[in-house]
Amino acid sequence: MEHYNMNLTVKVWRQKNSKEKGGFESYPVKDISSEMSFLEMIDVLNEQLIRDGDDPIAFDHDCREGICGQCSMYINGKPHGAWKANTTCQLHMRAFKDGETVTVEPWRAGAFPVIKDLMVDRSAFDRIIQAGGYISVNTGNAVDGNALPINKDKADASFAAAMCIGCGACVAACKNSSAMLFLSAKVAHLALLPQGEPERKSRVLNMVAQMDKEGFGACTNTGACEATCPKEISISNIARLNQEYLVASLTADK
């Protein structure tokens, strides 16, 4: 792998807090190594800003290994940047060329208000989970783990859905700011397992109701969510959710 250094212009959204209006600022950064991660480039820029007496750019990040789901930058017109199946923290600078201008924006959605600069409030996702994204089993009630064999294909499909990291890139990518991919991943994860059966119907109805209440848009199956998802959660989970919803609402008692 050939390594090289580059100079870039970073055009980034600055917004003091949720109440004030924001706008773009451009900053030059120099001698960025192609081996750096994108966030390490932002670190360099921030150190530069602090030394110059400016306010550093606030952004969410934590594990920096693509699993916690906290990092959330919309880079050059795509959530998490250009690489496929990737998070912002795992995007590396070899994806950029010397002299390039990189535009960085926060997730944009009414349900994800900006807290500061590139940080947004995604607590709506937690409330959607609270509406039913769990199996009601108190600690100590479990039977032996092998008492209930689960078809491997179903277990694998459930795992594939459960890989969602809750980053919100699907919402950021969707023209409707819909949270359907996030929601459907959880519904599919639990609906595919026998343990999820008892609450299967109430779960999907309540979670959809909560999603609507939070102000996310409706899904129009454009597929942008799937294309940007760092964990490649399949859009077919949304179809599964639709089916779950249809069955649950048609067979509901009231």
Partner: peptide, 20 residues
């Protein structure tokens, strides 16, 4: 119309290659 209201501030660079 409803869906359009869900994003009050738009993006400077639109995300276009993820969907048709």
């Amino acid at each position: 119309l409803d869906n359009r209201k869900k994003r009050s501030v738009g993006y400077a660079v639109a995300y276009s290659d993820g969907s048709k």
